[in-house]
Amino acid sequence: MLVRSWLAVFCGLLLMGLIHGCENTDTPKKTVPALAKELVLYDWVDDMPRSVLDDFTREYGVKVTYLTFESQEEAVENILQGKVYDVAVLENPFVPSLIGAKRLAEIDFRNVPNFKNISANFRDLAIDPGNRYTVPYHYGTTGLLVRTDLIGNAVNSWTDLWDPRFAGQVALRLQPRELISITLLSLGYGLNSEIPDEVNTAVDRLIALKQSILWVEVDTPKAAAKLLSGEAALLLGWPLDYQEAHGANPAISYILPKEGAPLWSDNYVIPTSSPNSYTAELFINFLLRPEISARIVNEKNYPTANDAALPLVNPEIRNDPVIFPSPEQLRRAHFYLPLSPAGESLYKQAWDRFLAAPPVLPNGQ
C-alpha cells in the first residue's frame, strides 16, 4: 500500500511539474574528522561521470577509485562478504536484507545537508523508514530497444521476446531479478511474485528462450553495439542504452510494453566495511549539489531524485519521454519490492536452475 501510495503521489507531482529549489550548503559538523586520502565508489559500469569524481578530488584532495559490478546480486554478495567500499549504489529491493545483516552504516545527515534537495516522493519508503541508511539517487524504467528498420513496429509486449520471428536476435544481460521479473509480467503474473508455481513457470519459460538469446555485457556501449551491428533486433535495456543506440541509428525505438514496465530506483549507501564514513558522507553531499546531480542526468540520461537539480537539466532531456516517462506510463509501471527471505531463496533456486539448463552460457557463466 505504501509503495502504491508513493507511486500515485510521484506520478501526480511529475504531471504537475512541481519542483522545489534549494540552495546549496556543504557545511560539515563543527568537529571535523580528517579526510581520507582515498575513497572507493562501488557502482554500475559507466554510471558515474568521471568528471564528477575528478571535481570532488580537486576540491577535497581525495582520490576516488571507481569499482564496478555486473549485477545487483554480485554487489550484495560482495558487501555481505565485507569487501571494503566507502559508497555503493543499491536498488531499493536489495537494501532491507543488507540492513538486516548489519552491512549498511547509519548515515550522519549533519554531514549531508543537501539531503534536503531530495524529493519527498523518494523519502521514508518502506525499504528504509526515515532514510537512516539510504540517500536516493536516480530512477528509471526497463524496456525494449527495437530495430524498427529490421523488424518494424510490431513489438509492444514482453511476450514478443518469445516470438519465433526474432529467434537468435534477442539480446539480454545476465540480470537475475530483472529477467525473472519481466518473464513473470509476460505471463500475466506480478513483477514481485513469490508464489512458487508462478516463479517456476516463469523460469521454465525463460529456459525455453535460452537458445534464442544473444548475451550482452552490462556496459552500455558494448550492449548497444550488438543492436547497431544488426546482430540483435531486440535489446532488453534502459534509457541510457537507448540514448547511445538511437543517437547512432534513429530507427531504434524504446518501447515500454503494454503489460507495464519495471520501475527501479537506486540509492547511495555506506557499507559498514568502510573505514571512511565521514569522507563518504561529504562525497554523497557533494553528489547532491544541484549542479552536480544535473550534470549526472545530462551525461547519463537517468532522471534524478534531486528536485533542486531539475531546473538545471537540459530541456531536451527533461522533456524526453524515454528518460522522464509520462504519468500514464508511470501509472502502468511496476515498482520493484524487496523479497522476503523465502522469496530470495525461491528466486536463487530458480536462477540456479536457469543457469544449469542447456545451452551452456558463454564464458562458463
Results as ranks from 00 to 15, higher is better:
353 R>C: 09
229 S>V: 06
126 A>G: 13
285 N>P: 04
206 L>Y: 05
241 D>G: 04
28 P>W: 05
218 V>Q: 00
296 I>W: 11
228 L>F: 07
336 Y>Q: 01
112 V>D: 05
268 Y>W: 15
79 I>T: 08
212 S>N: 06
302 Y>M: 10
1 M>A: 12
180 I>H: 13
294 A>K: 13
344 E>W: 05
322 V>N: 03
214 L>N: 04
72 Q>I: 06
34 A>I: 13
22 C>T: 11
71 S>I: 13
232 A>T: 09
199 V>Y: 12
27 T>G: 02
6 W>E: 07
274 S>P: 02
231 E>M: 00
263 L>S: 10
143 G>C: 03
141 T>C: 04
359 P>H: 02
305 A>C: 04
145 L>A: 00
309 A>Q: 02
144 L>V: 07
21 G>L: 15
137 Y>M: 04
88 A>G: 15
175 Q>W: 15
264 W>P: 13
255 I>Q: 03
243 Q>S: 10
244 E>Q: 09
233 A>S: 03
5 S>Y: 10
13 L>Q: 01
5 S>G: 15
66 Y>T: 13
173 R>H: 14
209 L>G: 06
49 P>M: 06
51 S>R: 13
157 S>P: 02
231 E>Q: 08
240 L>T: 12
222 K>R: 09
308 A>Q: 04
104 L>N: 05
118 I>D: 01
23 E>W: 14
92 N>K: 02
206 L>N: 05
147 R>D: 02
343 G>L: 09
345 S>F: 10
346 L>K: 03
139 Y>T: 11
145 L>K: 00
246 H>I: 12
48 M>D: 11
76 V>I: 11
354 F>A: 08
80 L>P: 08
7 L>C: 11
55 D>P: 07
166 F>R: 06
18 L>H: 10
275 P>N: 11
225 A>Q: 15
106 E>K: 14
197 D>L: 14
183 T>N: 05
3 V>G: 08
204 D>F: 06
260 G>P: 06
212 S>T: 10
32 V>K: 15
94 F>W: 11
121 N>L: 06
254 Y>I: 04
222 K>F: 03
220 T>Q: 00
164 P>D: 04
93 P>T: 11
74 E>V: 14
298 N>E: 15
27 T>L: 09
2 L>V: 15
59 E>A: 10
25 T>M: 02
72 Q>S: 03
234 L>P: 00
52 V>P: 08
135 V>R: 00
169 Q>L: 07
303 P>T: 12
55 D>R: 10
115 F>P: 02
252 I>L: 01
86 D>G: 10
163 D>R: 03
223 A>L: 05
294 A>W: 14
275 P>H: 05
349 Q>R: 14
260 G>L: 01
178 E>V: 13
334 H>T: 13
198 E>W: 11
127 I>E: 01
159 T>S: 12
305 A>M: 04
83 K>A: 07
155 V>P: 09
204 D>S: 08
